[in-house]
């Protein structure tokens, strides 16, 4: 059943609408929410929402509980190729939990938060932006590590990044929900403005694996979920551009790179010269690579999870 959770007037003959599809069956009391589209340039969640919705509706007898699908928290952004909330110059994921007396976007954030509160799990699907390509991963604030990592492992992703607490992140949807007792997992995958079919299919399997483990889905598993690398503490190397230029690389995410291995190069098309070579500073797992080739000094080009001695033989995964 499709429900409208927000309807607000736009200036010229249009309603701003945020909608969800509520799928229920059986006697199970659990409610799992799949949300996406906070950033208008992130589209991987569109396919995952479609697949989850389609598979449940084709096999409704296997559902025991409620799954709610919110495919577009920022529909104006998705429709107009804008990452932020159009007309407000705001990153929507920096204004949660919103404000019932605030601007239109702050009110929208408030109503979304209130609608999601009390769910047994919220899966918040993000792609990367236009600039970076990410391997499928779950990001968890260190404050919620013990509570959420076991659930994250069910999602069939390659990487779980337990990151430090940062005050600015207190205004995200995930923080707002987690800090009030509603568990929320943030998934990142792919690159902005594109859909990677394989990654989305894997995540869809992960969503059903989580539903199964939480007793909401009675279907059999297609394949064992992947064993993700769990990254904790200060074990990520950030590779920032030494020069402004064009970053050329053939490197893919989700690969192991050696210390000293060439990741790419920054070149100058005007002079026809290589400005700098981008070299891996460590042996590790490359989980982020730059997708948009133009860089300024400081632009992020790659992130590598550094292996310790033990992980050199295991590839960072628990065997």
């Amino acid at each position: 059943m499709i429900k409208t959770i927000i309807s607000s007037e736009l200036p010229i003959g249009e309603q701003f609408l945020v909608r969800k599809n509520v799928l229920s069956n059986g006697n199970g009391g659990k409610r799992i929410c799949v949300v996406t589209g906070t950033h208008g340039d992130e589209l991987e969640g569109q396919m995952v929402c479609y697949e989850v919705s389609r598979i449940i509706q084709e096999n409704i007898e296997l559902l025991d509980g409620t799954v709610e699908i919110y495919p577009a928290l920022n529909p104006l952004g998705i429709d107009s190729l804008q990452r932020g909330f159009p007309n407000f110059d705001l990153d929507m994921n920096r204004i949660f939990p919103g404000n019932p007396k605030g601007t239109m976007v702050e009110q929208a954030a408030y109503r979304i938060t209130e609608d999601l509160k009390g769910a047994d799990m919220v899966i918040d699907i993000h792609s990367s932006n236009l600039y970076l390509r990410e391997c499928p991963q779950v990001r968890i604030n260190v404050m919620h590590e013990d509570w959420l990592v076991p659930y994250a492992k069910m999602l069939n992703v390659d990487f779980i990044w337990v990151h430090d607490a940062a005050t600015v992140l207190e205004a995200t949807l995930a923080y707002s929900l987690n800090s009030t007792g509603t568990p929320c997992l943030v998934v990142e995958l792919g690159v902005g403005q594109r859909i990677n079919d394989r990654m989305c299919a894997n995540l869809t399997n992960g969503v059903f694996n989580l539903l199964r483990n939480m007793g909401v889905w009675k279907g059999v598993e297609d394949a064992l979920p992947s064993k993700p690398i769990v990254c904790k503490g200060d074990k990520v190397d950030f590779l920032n551009a030494a020069n402004s230029g064009v970053f050329l690389t053939e490197q893919k995410t989700g690969t192991v790179v050696e210390k000293g291995q060439k990741i790419g190069a920054i070149v100058d098309p005007l002079s026809g010269t290589v400005l700098s070579e981008v070299i891996s500073p460590c042996l590790g797992y490359l989980f982020t690579i730059r997708a948009y080739p133009i860089v300024y000094e400081g632009s992020l080009m790659a992130r590598i999870y550094k292996f310790d001695e033990k992980e050199k033989s295991t590839g960072g995964r628990d065997l």
Partner: peptide, 25 residues
């Protein structure tokens, strides 16, 4: 209004980080 390449806001990057991303630098 913001940094044209990636739409980040310099005034949301303080105190900055000289080894970080462009607007952090």
């Amino acid at each position: 209004r913001f940094w044209a390449m990636d739409n980040t806001d310099i005034n949301r990057m303080f105190p900055g980080y000289d080894q970080g991303e462009t607007t952090q630098r």
